[in-house]
């Protein structure tokens, strides 16, 4: 029994190889881009729009509002990264309803890749909004002693992100696989349905946590820029 789709390798040439994780990721990417391209190709700006455009607009507006509610403004600066994170994970997890499908998020490589993206996105947005010095200063706050703890925090939360998503999705897939061998009827379907819910929740959690991490850096920057009196009042 293969625990990860990484183990299903289709082509290999030395270090380079194409496995199921990569293939599934490409398929999901193609699906997302095809749907987006097809709908937005005939996008209209007046009041009579197609139902597909309406769904896309609702989705984008919801993501936008979530980002805004967490405190990142303007959300259009972050929706590219955070929205894609959510859509990719959600689509990957929702596709578990398909037979013989193995979610790429069930691979620790994928979740680690996504966590690494978040790991680099946080300083990227922090530096972009605050400047590199101010961003680096945030590691020695409130005191210099906190520097190692802050660094550990950065690393550990990235690891937590990767393992949380991997663990949940992999375990879901594993449970269904085990149940199929024990009780092949009905019960695996229920577990798959539960897997859908878990997948959506995990997509939400992953993207929300990424948003919170970025917001924490960006807002810390903004708060430091504000006058003290305003700071007190806001507290």
């Amino acid at each position: 029994m293969k625990l990860s789709p990484d183990q299903t390798v289709f082509w290999q040439h030395g270090f380079v190889h194409i496995n199921l994780t990569i293939i599934t990721s490409w398929a999901i990417m193609a699906l997302l881009i095809a749907i987006s391209g097809l709908i937005t190709r005939k996008i209209r700006t007046d009041f009579r729009i197609s139902r597909w455009q309406c769904i896309l607009e609702m989705l984008v507006t919801t993501i936008n509002n979530e980002i805004k509610d967490i405190g990142l403004n303007p959300p259009s600066d972050y929706i590219g990264f955070l929205g894609t994170l959510f859509l990719f994970i959600a689509t990957a997890n929702l596709c578990i309803i398909l037979p013989w499908y193995q979610a790429p998020t069930g691979s620790l490589s994928t979740t680690a890749a996504l966590a690494i993206c978040v790991f680099f996105a946080v300083p990227f947005f922090g530096v972009e909004k605050r400047g590199i010095l101010n961003y680096l200063k945030s590691f020695v706050e409130p005191t210099f002693i906190m520097l190692p703890f802050n660094i550990i925090s950065e690393l550990s939360r990235t690891l937590a992100l990767a393992v949380r998503l991997f663990g949940n999705i992999m375990s879901g897939g594993m449970i269904v696989a085990i149940l199929l061998s024990i009780s092949p009827f009905i019960f695996p379907v229920v577990m798959k349905a539960l897997g859908l819910l878990t997948g959506m929740v995990q997509a939400y959690i992953f993207s929300i946590l990424a948003t919170v991490y970025i917001a924490a850096v960006v807002q810390k920057v903004k708060e430091k820029d504000k006058p003290l009196t305003v700071n007190k009042i806001s507290k």
Binding site: S25, M29, S76, S109
Partner: peptide, 28 residues
């Protein structure tokens, strides 16, 4: 290798979705 590939995949996806999804929709 998968990690690197997935990072690249994800960054490409970010770029493509920005181009085909977020920008047109937000613009509309």
């Amino acid at each position: 290798f998968t990690v690197i590939a997935e990072v690249i995949n994800f960054l490409i996806l970010v770029w493509l979705l920005k181009k085909f999804l977020y920008k047109p929709v937000l613009k509309a």
